[in-house]
Design a protein around this nucleic acid. Structure first.
Length: 436
DNA sequence: TCTGGGGTCCTAGGACCC
DNA sequence: TCTGGGGTCCTAGGACCC
C-alpha cells in the first residue's frame, strides 16, 4: 500500500469513464448489461463505443457499421445510434461529482477529466481514487478508471494500465517500484500525444516502447516530433510540462458539419442544409460570447464511392464587421455556397466554419464601411433579437423558432435508426419504473 | 566569384486529441 | 443504401517590408 505523500509535489489523476457511451445506455437499460453492445457515430456510420463483450467478439473501433450488419445480427449485438443529449447530461453529472473531490479539475473530454490532488494526512491517494470511483458508480451507474502519476502523460498511461491490468480500476505510478520496467511494456503508440503517424515513424527509427522514447535525447525528439513531442517525452520522465486548464480558453474556431442521411443533389436542399449548419454555428458562437470575422463553407462528394464523379470545394470570406447575427452569417454562407456549388454531383457532406473569433464586447469596427453602415452592423436590435431567439429555444427546445432558410422537413438530415430515449433531458422520455 | 539580414504575416499541410 | 464530428497546435515556405 503506498503511503501518504509528505511532499507538496502535485499528483495528477486521470479519471476516464469505461466505454462511456455504452455505459450510458446500460445505466438505463439493465437488459443489456451483459449483452455485446455498440454505439455508432452520427449518421449511424461507424462504431465509436464497444462494450467489453463487443470487443471480445473482435469488433474494432471505427469499423463501418454497414459492413458488420450481418455479424451484429448473428451474434445478437445490440446497436445504438449516438444519443448526445443523454451522453452530455450524464457527463455533466459525472463531472459534478469529480469536481467535489478537487477544485483543480480540467474536463478534458466528454468522458475524461484530470484532477490535481492534494495529499491528505493519513490517507493514500489510491484510497481517495477508489472512493471517487465508488461514488461515481453509485450515483450515476457509470464505471470509471483512475490513473495517478506526477504528470498528465503518465497519468494517462496509469489509467490505461488500470483498465487493462487491475481489478480495482485504480493504478498509482508511485506504487510502482520500477516505472521504467512498466514503460518497457507499453508500445510507444499508446503514449498520449503519439498518434498513428508518429508511431509508424518511431518504429521505423527503432523506437518501439515508451521506455525507449523516454530515453532518447531532447534534440533527437524535438527534430522529429516537434516541440510538442519533446513535452511528451519530458512528461514521461516525470517532469510536468502540460498544466491543468481549469478554465477552458475560448474556442478560436467553431464548426458545424454533418454527413447527409442520403446524397444531396439539388441546390435547394444544399442551401437549406448549409443555412441550418450556419444557424447552429451562430448559436454556438453566441453561447461563447464571441463574434466571428470570417466564414468558411465546404461541400464534398463521397470519396468512398470512386465510381461517382468527385468534387469538393471550400471557400472563405472575411466579414466587414465581426458578427454572431444569424441572418448576417447565413447570407455570407449562402454567397459562398453559390460560388462553389456545382450541379451533377451527389454530395455527401457539407459544413460551415467560423474563425477569427473575438469577444463580443471588444469587436473591431470597420474602417472601410462608411456610415451609416457601421451603425447598422452594430444595430442593438440585432443583438436583442438573437437574445430573444436563443431564450425561446433554450426554454422550449431547439428550433422552436428557426429561420425559414434552414428548412422544415430536413429530408437530408442524418440517419439515427437506433436511438435510445433521452432519459434524463426530456419529460416525455423519462424512464418508467413499474412497481411490482 | 560574389546576390543582405532581420522581421512579420499568412497559408497550407501535417500532426495530434477525443 | 452504407465509412463521424469537432477541435488545436506546429512548421515550412512564400510574400512583403525596411
Amino acid at each position: 500500500m503506498p503511503q501518504p505523500r509528505a511532499t507538496a509535489a502535485p499528483v495528477y489523476a486521470l479519471v476516464d469513464c469505461n466505454n462511456f457511451y455504452v455505459s450510458c445506455e446500460r445505466a438505463f437499460d439493465p437488459s443489456i448489461r451483459t449483452t455485446p453492445t455498440v454505439v455508432l457515430s452520427n449518421n449511424d456510420g461507424c462504431v465509436i463505443a464497444r462494450s467489453p463483450e463487443a470487443k471480445a467478439l473482435g469488433i474494432g473501433m471505427a469499423e463501418p457499421a454497414f459492413k458488420r450488419e450481418g455479424f451484429f445480427r448473428q451474434h445478437g449485438v445490440r446497436v445504438f445510434s449516438s444519443n448526445y443529449a443523454l451522453y452530455g447530461d450524464m457527463s455533466r453529472r459525472v463531472m459534478d461529482i469529480l469536481g467535489s473531490f478537487s477544485p483543480d479539475m480540467e474536463v478534458y473530454s466528454i468522458d475524461e477529466a484530470f484532477l490535481r490532488l492534494r495529499p491528505v494526512t493519513g490517507r493514500s491517494l489510491t484510497d481517495l481514487a477508489c472512493e471517487m470511483r465508488r461514488t461515481v458508480h453509485q450515483w450515476t451507474g457509470i464505471p470509471v478508471s483512475v490513473g495517478l502519476a506526477p504528470t498528465k502523460t503518465l497519468a494517462k498511461l496509469a489509467n490505461h494500465w488500470a483498465k487493462k491490468h487491475t481489478a480495482s480500476g485504480v493504478f498509482d505510478c508511485a506504487a510502482c517500484a520500477d516505472v521504467d520496467a512498466l514503460l518497457e511494456r507499453i508500445d510507444v503508440g499508446e503514449v498520449w500525444g503519439i498518434g498513428r503517424r508518429y508511431a509508424d515513424k518511431l518504429h521505423r527509427l527503432g523506437v518501439h516502447t515508451a521506455r525507449q522514447l523516454k530515453d532518447r535525447p531532447d534534440h533527437w525528439v524535438q527534430r522529429r516530433l516537434t516541440i510538442k513531442g519533446l513535452m511528451t517525452v519530458k512528461e514521461l520522465r516525470g517532469q510536468p510540462c502540460i498544466p491543468i486548464e481549469d478554465a477552458p480558453p475560448p474556442h478560436k474556431s467553431i464548426m458545424s458539419s454533418r454527413s447527409f442521411g442520403r446524397p444531396v443533389t439539388t441546390w435547394d436542399e444544399m442551401l437549406e442544409a448549409v443555412s441550418a449548419y450556419t444557424a447552429r454555428t451562430a448559436e454556438k458562437l453566441r453561447r461563447q460570447g464571441s463574434v466571428a470575422s470570417s466564414v468558411m463553407v465546404f461541400i464534398k462528394t463521397n470519396h468512398h464511392k470512386p465510381e461517382d464523379p468527385q468534387y469538393s470545394a471550400t471557400r472563405t470570406m472575411q466579414l466587414p464587421v465581426a458578427s454572431a447575427h444569424t441572418p448576417t452569417l447565413i447570407k455570407a454562407a449562402q454567397t459562398l455556397l453559390r460560388a462553389i456549388f456545382r450541379t451533377g454531383y451527389r454530395y455527401c457532406k457539407a459544413g460551415v466554419m467560423v474563425a477569427g473569433l473575438e469577444r463580443e464586447d471588444s469587436r473591431q469596427l470597420s474602417l472601410l464601411t462608411l456610415p451609416p453602415d457601421p451603425l447598422l452592423a452594430q444595430d442593438p436590435r440585432q443583438d436583442a433579437l438573437m437574445e430573444t431567439l436563443d431564450g425561446i429555444n433554450a426554454k422550449w427546445g431547439r428550433d422552436t423558432v428557426q429561420y425559414a432558410a434552414t428548412g422544415l422537413g430536413k429530408p437530408w438530415s442524418m440517419r439515427q435508426n437506433h436511438k435510445s430515449p433521452r432519459y434524463t433531458t426530456s419529460w416525455n422520455e423519462l424512464p418508467v419504473v413499474k412497481m411490482g
